[in-house]
Simulated scan of single mutants.
Amino acid sequence: MAELQTAIEQMADVGPAVSVFGSARIRPASPYYAKSTAITSALAKAGFAIISGGGPGIMEAASKGAFEAGGQSVGLNIKLPHESTHNAHQTHSLDFRHFSPRKSVFFMYSMAYVVLPGGFGTLDELFEALTLVQTRKLRPAPIILVGGEFWGGLIDWMREQLLPHGTIGPGDLDLMVIEDDPARVVERVIAFHGQHPIAALRPPQAQAATK
């Protein structure tokens, strides 16, 4: 609770934000690193804050794109054995020891989610976003998967296994979209924000916690 309260206080001046998820193990030479930087640079120039995990890989690329574009770059840093330092491209640097409050901050402050290739942690964040939107614990939000080659097999599996078994509803796969073009990712976020500006308001739990 103390970590969450501190985060709410530090996030008070952050505007409409987009969370970017992806692996810490993606190298700068990867095309996905470049796509992450391009997406967050364009989003920052359009007035969106960028929230990332604060570590290396895709998280570093996301922070770098926003930071170098002169935007707000929020790093939700967590100390892990294989990620001993957080990246230097942050205007807001928050430190966590626990995953639970860290994830809460992602979902409290984001009006869209951009998901690049990643491992278990990225999958955890993706499926939590889907679950929260599906169950209406979050307002509707774009959930954009970047990389058709990477994500296509997972979507096919859900279509072939989850839908026939009835474990998800007929429209649940429509909660996310695959997009390879960084410009189209940015267009989708901007269009959604224009149609649903309420999704960018400070969340009720954050408002209550600061009173």
Rank of each mutant, 00 (worst) to 15 (best):
G70C: 10
G118P: 11
S110N: 07
P81A: 14
R97M: 07
A49R: 04
A61K: 05
D124A: 15
S63M: 09
G75A: 10
G47D: 06
H98I: 02
H82N: 10
Y113L: 07
I58W: 01
M108L: 13
G47Q: 05
I78D: 00
K64H: 03
I50K: 04
K79T: 13
H92K: 14
G119S: 12
F120C: 10
I50T: 15
M59N: 06
F67Y: 07
A112R: 04
T91A: 11
T91E: 02
L76E: 12
F106E: 02
E68I: 11
M59K: 03
L76T: 15
S52W: 00
S63V: 10
I51F: 03
P101I: 07
L80Y: 00
V105G: 09
A49D: 11
F107R: 01
M108S: 11
A49C: 14
H86K: 08
F48N: 10
D95L: 14
F107V: 13
S100E: 01
R102D: 03
K79H: 10
A66M: 09
Q72S: 15
E60S: 12
F106N: 05
T122H: 07
G65C: 15
H82G: 05
N77I: 11
V114E: 01
P101T: 05
S52H: 04
F99C: 09
I58D: 05
P56C: 09
A46L: 09
A88V: 14
F106L: 12
D124C: 14
F106Y: 03
G121I: 13
R97H: 06
Q90P: 06
R102C: 08
G75T: 06
K103F: 09
H98Y: 00
F99Q: 03
S104R: 06
F96S: 07
G71A: 15
G57W: 01
R97I: 10
M111H: 10
S100T: 09
L76F: 12
F107L: 10
A88C: 12
M111V: 12
